[in-house]
Design a protein around this nucleic acid. Structure first.
Lengths: 126, 126
DNA sequence: GTAACTACTATACAAATGTATACTGGTATA
DNA sequence: TATACCAGTATACATTTGTATAGTAGTTAC
């Protein structure tokens, strides 16, 4: 069985492959769901209340906002703080950990920006 | 209407937000689908034929392999080359463009690896 | 002539994900 | 007493995504 590629010299084994696939999948899963990016995008500019997020993110329903915020909280990217005002206010804020993911997101943004140009450019020629 | 956050000083406008959300979504979409990562993972070690990929990726069906390879090809991350042998052989290979995405994937892998440790660590304490 | 190889495609179904719409409980204001 | 605010939840449905299983066409080996 061939396990060594002549070009890269790297071994292709189930082990080597899963050391790539599993952690990338973990990162990807944090961002999966239609509304994670808009929520993180909104929170990148500072903390926000539930209703503020609902207003800032067009077409999101409270069900989805609640659900995806909970997932972001579970993954420690966002904190939820309840204030005993009347009526109650709840603030959502990015954690420093969440900000560490921002660096990865910025790499994705930069690649995506030039990809968008590349695809648009091709369309012009077609 | 409040558009300036006192902490970051960055403006939060629909425009600023979509300049983040849209390109990140583009990058994310390229990787969406259960089998994209295993396929890219396999092709990172060199070119492969259809049947080789089918054998290397446990439990993938030919339908999904075909479908996801087509999407990777559409996005210019992978090339498909048909050889006039008998029976025909078809080779799939990462493009240099695909390799430029590898850098982003590596950032995701690194973040995901330490995230995995963090989550595992928390579980031990619970 | 029949079995096996390659690289797929077709059909039907199951599971996951997202949407629409309405509703809850507590407080304050008119 | 009626209405509005906040931060959600409940239920049913629609859409998207993935799976299971079988079949295609062309060639070669037995």
């Amino acid at each position: 069985m061939k396990t060594i590629n002549t070009e890269t010299g790297k071994k292709h084994t189930p082990q080597a492959c899963s050391q790539f696939v599993l952690p990338v999948r973990d990162t990807l899963d944090l961002l999966s769901g239609k509304w994670k990016l808009p929520i993180l995008g909104a929170l990148m500019f500072g903390k926000k209340r539930f209703k503020e997020l609902e207003r800032d993110i067009p077409r999101i329903t409270p069900r989805m906002l609640s659900k995806e915020l909970k997932e972001l909280e579970d993954n420690q990217l966002v904190t939820r703080t309840v204030f005993d005002t009347k009526p109650v206010t709840v603030e959502y804020e990015m954690t420093t950990y969440g900000k560490s993911l921002e660096k990865v997101l910025t790499a994705m943004k930069d690649w995506g920006t030039q990809h968008r140009k590349r695809i648009m450019g091709k369309k012009k020629q077609a």
